[in-house]
Each structure stands twice: as C-alpha cells, then as structure tokens.
Design a protein around this nucleic acid. Structure first.
Lengths: 232, 232
DNA sequence: GCTTGATGAATCGTTGAACAATCCTCTAAT
DNA sequence: ATTAGAGGATTGTTCAACGATTCATCAAGC
C-alpha cells in the first residue's frame, strides 16, 4: 500500500509536465522570458500581428497568451489599444515591498513549525548566490536572491502564498531594469542573506525578522532612488 | 494647482469604468455571478457550445472569459476536457484560511497607521450585516461578512493585498455551498465582528488580533466539518 | 500659434467556419 | 467481467472577414 502511494504521488507530481502542452502557454513562456530578461523593455507595445507572425501562431492563441501574462502582471491590456510590457511605477514598487514585508515576515515566523528540509532550502540558495557571485554572474546572483526569498515564504507551506510570492517577484524584476549596475544592487545583500539563513536554522526568528525588515528598507529605498533618478 | 490635481485624480479614478466594455469581460462577469451564487454548482462542466449559444457569443470570446475566471481560481481548465466550476478540496479551504490569517492579522496590526475612514469602514460593514440579519437575509449577511474582512485588510492600504483578498474570498464562496443552513454559519459571527470592530476603533490591535484568530479557528473548523460530512 | 474637427490608415474586437487532436461512450469479443 | 476498438462529441487551433476604435495627419478657425 505504501509502495503504491509512493509512485502514485510521484506520478501525480509529474503530471503538470505532461499537461504542459497548450500552445498559448508555450507562447506565454517565450514572452515571459523575454520580458523578464529585458529583451522587451517596459512600455513596449506587443502587436498581435507582428508577434503572431514572429512566433508562427494565430492571433487567437496569441491573445490567450497575452491574457496569461496580463494576469501575471507582466503585461497590461488596454482595450482597443493592445498589450504593453508593464511599466512599474514607484508606487507599484512600494506596494510590492509592502506585500513582501507581510508575506516574508510571516514566513520567517513560521520557521518554528516548518520541516527541516524547508529551512535547509533557504540556506541552499544563499550558497547558490555566493557561487554565482564568484563567477561574476550578477544576473544569476539576482535569481538566487529571488529563490532565497521564495524559500522564506515557502516555510509557510501554502501553495497560494507560494504562487502570490512568485508573481510578486516576477513583477519586481520589471523594476530591476532601471538599475544600471546589477552588481551594486545585488552584491551587498549576499551577506545579509547568509546571516538571515543562519538565524533561521538557529530558530531565532525574532532577529531574523528584524534583519529581513532592515533589508527591505534598504533595498526598497535603493530601488526608489534609482526610479527618482531615472524617471525624474 | 491643487484644484486641478483634485479633479484630475477623480477623473483618472473613473477611467476603469469607461474601459469596461470587452465582451469577454462582460461574459466573465455573468459567469462569475452565477458561480458565486451557486447557480453553477462546483463540478459543473461548462460546454463551450452550450454556454456560447446561451450567451450569444462566439467560442473564441467565451474562451477568453474562461481564461479570466480560471485565473481567478473560480474555474479549472483541463486540457481537451473543458472547463469546470472549481471544486474546493478541504486542503484548499485550509490553505485559504492560512493565507487569510496572514493577511488579516497584518491588516489588524496596521490599524495604528490606517486613516480614520478606513477604520470606520470596518464598523460600517458590521452594521450592514446586523441589518441584513434583522431582515433574515442570510446571504446578505454573508456578503456583509466578506466586506467586513476585506475592510480589515484594506487597513493596509495596499492595492495588491486588496486584490489578493478579494480573490481569496471569492474562492471561499465556492466552499460555502457545502453548508446547508447559511444562518447557522453566518449568525454566530455577527457578535464577533462587532467586538473586533470596536477593538479596532479603540486601537487595541493585540486583542483584536486574538479575537480574529479565534474566529478563524472556529469558522475553518466548521467548514471542514461540513466538508468531512458532505464529501465523506 | 494653438486648438478644434475631419479624414484615412492601422489595429483591435469579435465572429464564424473549418480541420485536427483528444476524450468519452458504447459495442463487441475474449 | 474485463479489455479492445469504433464512432461520436468536444476541445484546440488556425484562418479569413468585418465592424469598431484608436491614432496620426492635416486642414480650418479663433
């Protein structure tokens, strides 16, 4: 019986990979990639005909892909005007950080009930970031940092929180484009993350929360400063 | 200058009303209504042809509406099988309450920084619920209760939290259908809500938080019990 | 010179039809 | 009773078309 439940669970975990076949979702994957890495800068208009021809899909499927990404807040759909790559305002950045404060502090406090592997996962992404930094791959440091913070909210073991967090961070990537030097934005936080991870594995969630909140203040201020400079 | 900014802000706030015209969104509104009020019970399959003919829209626009509602978690889309009204599992109910605990306790704690009107808004929905109860309109008591809890998270003044909360509660309505008597589910909480509102307007967020958490435990247990009975 | 109004091109919104791919049901055979 | 297969129904996707809306251009009027 347990053996059966074993592979049954493994198979059902692999199911999403099989289902993953809709053309619209594949198109959305491609577009998401290009939006996140900056190939399609914020404000770019995505013409249905142009993109459709480029990717070889019909307008209908493309529109479904647009809807997908609109609900991930990566694109905005304006009636009769088309879809555009989302342009994050300073207020959006502040709002994203407000929500991160809520979710991530809740995550930190949940460390007392979280399974050991979940706590270790946090530390793993610290290592990942450090390794990327040694290679000078600052984009990879950025994604490691995202994974680090997602691992923190994963301590809550809530699928809905996980999904919300994933969307928040994907959105936030749109804001990173205003930061010229990725290194100056990501490097300082490597030490912070390591400290937070240590505090978490020690179960000292109070100090971890304080450190985390301090990080939010600094990172948010840094982003908003870049915004003020860039946008005027 | 201030006068200008005044109506400028008011106009830009009215903009979404003008945009609201897409056929797909209108169809989504109709379907959402019917899903939430139980006309389309969980598990119902929504045939593209049937619904399309019924509402007089083409399959393509209908599919766009389906996508919209799928991303609100009200419908589930199974590849090559169609869309169904979401069937909430017990785990979903628990997860929704987990997230509500996080967001609403954060909302309660934000009472110290929230504007006075926002706090008053909470009490207003208590009154709304009490009035509906006197009329014996228990469905209205339910919606007043939802508004009450949305007003609590609105204390955070975060658009993203507001939207997340709205979606969470819409989802939760899917679970209410398993409760036979609406009255036995909604009536006991009228007093709780009134007490919490009073504590909030007094600024006593610590006790308000405790009361709120107690409410969550009871309401969640009540729902899950109904689930265990109903689904077996 | 600036605003107002009209014209036309480009694009989106929506429809309808068509075909392939997939799922479901029903029947038949072992 | 279980399995295998055939047929029908439904979805996935594309294509073409037309009305509706936006945008840019340009002329007219103050």
């Amino acid at each position: 019986m347990t053996a059966m439940a074993d592979w049954a669970a493994r198979l059902s975990a692999a199911r999403p990979v099989l289902d993953r076949a809709s053309a619209a979702e594949l198109v959305a994957d491609v577009l998401r990639e290009n939006v996140i890495d900056g190939s399609l800068p914020p404000g770019t208009r995505l013409s249905e005909e142009t993109i459709g021809n480029l990717l070889g899909v019909s307008r209908n499927t493309l529109r479904e892909a647009f809807r997908l990404l609109s609900h991930e807040n990566l694109l905005v759909h304006e009636l009769h005007r088309g879809v555009f790559v989302r342009k994050l305002a300073a207020a959006d950045v502040a709002d994203i950080y407000a929500m991160r404060r809520i979710l991530e502090t809740a995550g930190v406090r949940a460390v007392v009930t979280a399974p050991r592997e979940a706590v270790e996962e946090v530390g793993r992404h610290v290592e990942e970031g450090r390794a990327a930094a040694e290679n000078g791959d600052w984009a990879a440091v950025g994604t490691a940092n995202m994974r680090f913070h997602r691992a923190i909210t994963a301590l809550l073991a809530s699928p809905r929180v996980d999904e919300t967090m994933a969307r928040l961070l994907a959105e936030l990537r749109l804001a990173f484009h205003v930061m010229g030097e990725l290194r100056t934005f990501h490097e300082p936080y490597l030490g912070d993350n390591a400290r937070i991870a240590t505090l978490l594995s020690d179960g000292d969630h109070e100090r971890a929360e304080r450190e985390l909140l301090a990080y939010f203040d600094i990172a948010e201020a840094q982003l908003l400063a870049a915004y003020a400079e860039h946008a005027g």
